[in-house]
Amino acid sequence: MEKYVPAPARAVFNLLQTNFTADAASWEGKCIISVKQFGLESLAKLFEVADEMKKLVKESGGDQRLQGRLLATLFFENSTRTCCSLQAAMLRLGGSVVSVNETTSSVKKGETLQDTIACLCSYCDVVALRHPQQGAAVQAVTATRRPLINAGDGVGEHPTQAILDVYTMVSELGGVEGKVITLVGDLKNGRTVHSLARLLALYACELHFVAPPALRMPEDVVRDVTARGRATVTQSDAFDAVLPRADVLYVTRVQKERFEDAAEYEALRLVYRVTPEVLARAKRDMVLMHPLPRVGEIAEDCDDDPRAAYVRQMENGMVVRMALLALLLGKA
């Protein structure tokens, strides 16, 4: 007998049963809400398409496979990289973009998120949503008739960032298996590291979560990672102790917008800071990453170090999102 699911929750129930595979048909028309929808086979497929997109951009700038298709970027929080890379991805594949934010939408008049999503689905072929409320992307799924991409929901998840981060690690190191990966900074509020840790749990790697006690990785994320049984996890606030072994150093900013107490933010914001002197103690082939923006936690003096990969990381963001759009719209 089919499990009974109340009608308003049926879309969410169906979403949670959606897992992408190596078959491109498994992607078409689907929503991307959580990294929990991905496995090694689906990531390999996505990375294969992303490699093709990288080659396409280098050789010709793009193509017209998404001509006549329209992306809506609905962003209720500020964004540079995620919003612009999604728009650039759509434009490079011949599509068009409609942009909506909290100041231009009827949310200012009291419209619900579901009604806004339903409206955009009447005009567009795919929607990318960023929202300050954790769980907003799941809420939006109840109203969508089109593929929907979670572009960040509060302190919840940021799946496309995590995917491009793993793609960058694979591109820089040749793989993730057996690597020592250290995540440093605001692990409590950083949705990028919440998604990234869960995605890295697919690999037999060594994960170090380094944060002051007030900004430790949430327990639900740690449980999800350890439950996979592949990655090993350690937590501490001892940055200097783990630095020399790191193959990847992934630094995040302390998120001022998540603090109610300004004094607490000021006390924590630069607890860890990467400088050329710090890099001198790291492996010569270590990869230094950051989801950006940065606010002092990586000194600008580090930018010329060949280990600094955050510009390449940004470039990878566009080609990964080109691959995602092509797959979701059946044009990979």
Rank of each mutant, 00 (worst) to 15 (best):
2 E>W: 08
4 Y>N: 11
8 P>W: 14
18 T>S: 14
19 N>Y: 15
19 N>S: 11
20 F>V: 04
27 W>E: 12
27 W>Q: 08
28 E>Q: 14
29 G>S: 12
33 I>Q: 14
35 V>L: 13
37 Q>S: 08
37 Q>F: 10
41 E>N: 14
42 S>Y: 02
46 L>R: 03
50 A>H: 01
50 A>R: 00
52 E>Y: 05
60 S>N: 11
66 L>G: 11
78 N>A: 14
78 N>F: 08
81 R>M: 04
82 T>S: 10
84 C>P: 01
86 L>C: 10
86 L>M: 14
92 R>T: 03
101 N>C: 13
102 E>C: 11
102 E>W: 13
104 T>I: 05
105 S>R: 06
106 S>D: 12
107 V>H: 15
109 K>I: 01
109 K>Q: 12
110 G>A: 09
111 E>H: 07
114 Q>E: 15
117 I>W: 13
120 L>N: 03
123 Y>P: 00
124 C>M: 02
125 D>L: 05
128 A>R: 01
131 H>Y: 03
133 Q>P: 00
134 Q>H: 12
137 A>R: 06
141 V>R: 07
149 I>F: 04
149 I>Q: 03
149 I>L: 13
153 D>H: 09
155 V>D: 12
155 V>E: 15
156 G>H: 06
165 D>P: 00
171 S>M: 02
171 S>F: 01
176 V>P: 02
179 K>I: 02
180 V>K: 11
180 V>H: 11
181 I>G: 07
183 L>Q: 14
186 D>E: 15
194 H>I: 05
196 L>Q: 10
197 A>V: 01
207 L>V: 00
209 F>L: 13
209 F>R: 03
211 A>F: 02
211 A>T: 01
212 P>D: 15
212 P>E: 15
212 P>T: 11
213 P>T: 13
213 P>N: 15
215 L>F: 04
215 L>R: 08
217 M>H: 06
219 E>C: 12
220 D>K: 13
221 V>T: 14
223 R>D: 12
224 D>Y: 10
224 D>F: 07
227 A>Y: 10
230 R>C: 08
232 T>V: 02
236 S>W: 03
238 A>H: 11
252 T>I: 07
253 R>L: 05
256 K>N: 12
257 E>F: 04
261 D>L: 01
270 L>C: 09
270 L>F: 07
270 L>E: 11
271 V>T: 15
275 T>K: 12
276 P>H: 15
280 A>V: 06
280 A>G: 03
282 A>I: 10
282 A>H: 05
291 P>Q: 06
292 L>M: 06
293 P>W: 07
294 R>I: 01
294 R>Q: 09
306 P>W: 06
308 A>W: 00
308 A>E: 05
309 A>C: 04
310 Y>R: 01
311 V>H: 11
313 Q>M: 09
317 G>E: 11
320 V>S: 05
320 V>W: 02
321 R>D: 09
321 R>I: 02
323 A>W: 00
324 L>A: 08
328 L>K: 06
330 G>Q: 08
330 G>A: 13
331 K>R: 14
331 K>F: 06
